[in-house]
């Protein structure tokens, strides 16, 4: 138990962060290089103003027409992504771990709110799973890896909630939580989760093309 804990709290956490950061940098760098070689247009037509115009329209809830057409999906997605980012950084336990390891600290969320946000993430995962099962057009597109990724996202939140509530078996769940969270972090650069990296890139490029060349809106 202690050996496992020491490993996941120490070296593995370091490895997870390293893999995540280096992996993301590698992905961005290799795409940058490939684009330089094969997609020079991306650089030539890039316009910061129109890129930001598009990105902002797609970061503000209900700012794009398709978001208004799917209000439930939009609401769930925004809550999901917000909580997905906020909870890992601003949960008190995590903030304390950062403080312990690197001696930096920031304000953290009250545990009650963090609990609700965690439940929201899990609920959203169920919602997404439901879409994948019940909506024909989504089911048609869904692959095994899509479901696995959803599971990988939900697991750290599920186990974290369990550990936080100290339900029976919580010590094991705490370790499951730590390990699954670290795995999730390492998966980001190498799975579809990298949409986190490429969202601003694609949106920015298309925004530039739509704004500067095609003089049209893209939301």
């Amino acid at each position: 138990m202690h050996a496992v804990f020491n490993f996941v709290r120490g070296p593995m956490a370091g490895i997870a962060f390293a893999v995540f950061i280096i992996g993301c940098l590698y992905q961005m760098a290799s795409m940058w290089r490939l684009a330089r070689k094969k997609d020079a247009v991306v650089f030539h037509y890039f316009s910061l103003f129109y890129a930001l115009r598009s990105i902002i329209h797609w970061m503000v809830p209900f700012a794009a027409l398709n978001m208004r057409r799917h209000p439930v999906m939009t609401g769930v997605t925004f809550v999901f992504h917000l909580c997905l980012f906020a909870v890992p950084f601003f949960l008190s336990s995590h903030a304390i771990l950062f403080k312990e390891s690197w001696d930096v600290s920031w304000a953290w969320l009250p545990d009650g709110i963090a609990d609700i946000m965690t439940l929201a993430v899990m609920g959203a995962c169920l919602f997404f799973l439901g879409r994948r099962i019940f909506l024909r057009e989504v089911r048609y597109l869904t692959t095994v890896s899509d479901v696995l990724i959803l599971f990988c996202v939900a697991l750290p939140f599920f186990s974290g909630f369990w550990a936080g509530q100290q339900w029976p078996g919580f010590p094991v769940m705490t370790l499951v939580h730590m390990i699954s969270g670290e795995i999730l972090l390492m998966l980001i650069p190498f799975t579809r989760l990298r949409h986190m990296l490429f969202f601003p890139v694609i949106r920015g490029y298309m925004g530039s093309e739509f704004g500067a060349v095609r003089r049209a809106r893209d939301w």
């Binding site: 991306v42 597109l141 990298r194 490429f198 890139v201 694609i202």
Partner: peptide, 17 residues
């Protein structure tokens, strides 16, 4: 087959929107 092809093909999360 450049960066656009790869990024477009790999980023789609199959949301159906």
């Amino acid at each position: 087959g450049g960066a656009r092809l790869r990024v477009y093909a790999d980023t789609c999360v199959h949301c159906g929107l």
